[in-house]
């Protein structure tokens, strides 16, 4: 017997949270409908992890921007999940044009190909509009990618900045959240504290493309001005942006991510853990 409260005092509070409150009870358990709703969220998150990035679909959305394809050293998803180290290294000799460029934008599948596919191209185009005068490298689509895969890619192209747009670890209610990671003078061995992240890019529930584009453009211009990304740049960010803009300092906190990363959810391999 499922019992859903008739006059629900939670109703007034429910608008304040997406948490699954006031679900009712069947005995001590969840009512059938709440169970199925949970299962749907989990299924969508699982599919976001395991569905390969459709590179053709992304290429069709980039308005003629030249595109390069790369792959990390993780040959498949099962290996990718077990070996984050392989996801940070480029496979073989990638055929990338050498710059110099001001900025290399990389769209990586990360842990949610859905996020990369849904928002990656739109955000890249938004940024192109906001950065007149910047020389942009061909767009790179990266498969089985971790955040740090952007370093060897941008280094190979001689780009001053690497911007990795990558699918964040999917949650039950948010399977298509994109994270953006900015690194100056990218090269293998860059530490997470040297990056800035704008997380939870997920219109219409999270940051919109325009909001994310505005923050990232500010970070790029300010980063170029002060010659740094990471902690120094984070501290210069307008206070109102702080919840969504953070450096990647934290040592991986297995127990809980520190706040910024929690909102971030985001380095493409689990929010709490730098890739």
């Amino acid at each position: 017997m499922s019992q859903v409260p008739a006059d629900d005092p939670l109703a007034r509070l429910r608008a304040a949270t997406q948490a699954r409150i006031g679900l009712g009870r069947a005995g001590h358990a969840l009512p059938t409908r709440a169970c199925l709703s949970f299962d749907l969220g989990h299924a969508r998150a699982r599919d976001a992890v395991w569905t390969p990035l459709d590179t053709d679909a992304v290429t069709a959305k980039v308005d003629g921007w030249p595109v390069c394809m790369v792959h990390s050293q993780a040959p498949d998803r099962a290996t990718y999940l077990r070996r984050p180290d392989l996801g940070r290294n480029l496979a073989g000799a990638a055929d990338l044009p050498s710059g110099p460029f001001d900025l290399s934008i990389i769209i990586g599948d990360g842990l949610s190909s859905r996020a990369a596919q849904a928002h990656g191209a739109a955000l890249a185009l938004d940024l192109r509009r906001r950065l007149p005068g910047w020389s942009l490298a061909p767009l790179v689509l990266a498969q089985q990618a971790r955040v740090a895969l952007g370093d060897p890619i941008a280094a190979a192209m001689g780009a001053r900045f690497a911007l990795m747009l990558i699918g964040e670890r999917p949650g039950l209610s948010a399977a298509d959240s994109l994270g953006a990671y900015l690194t100056i003078d990218p090269r293998p061995g860059r530490m997470d504290s040297e990056r800035n992240c704008v997380s939870n890019i997920r219109p219409p529930h999270g940051l919109s493309i325009a909001q994310a584009g505005e923050k990232l453009a500010w970070l790029l211009m300010e980063g170029r001005r002060i010659g740094a990304t990471g902690i120094a740049l984070k501290d210069a960010a307008p206070t109102k942006d702080r919840p969504h803009v953070h450096h990647q300092s934290h040592a991986a906190d297995p127990a809980r991510p520190s706040a910024g990363q929690a909102v971030a959810g985001g380095d493409g391999d689990g929010g709490a853990f730098p890739p």
Binding site: T17, A19, R20, I21, A34, P170, G171, L172, A174, A262
Partner: peptide
């Protein structure tokens, strides 16, 4: 609530 932590994902 509902086993779904909407902050920590």
């Amino acid at each position: 609530p509902g086993a779904d932590d909407i902050m920590l994902n």
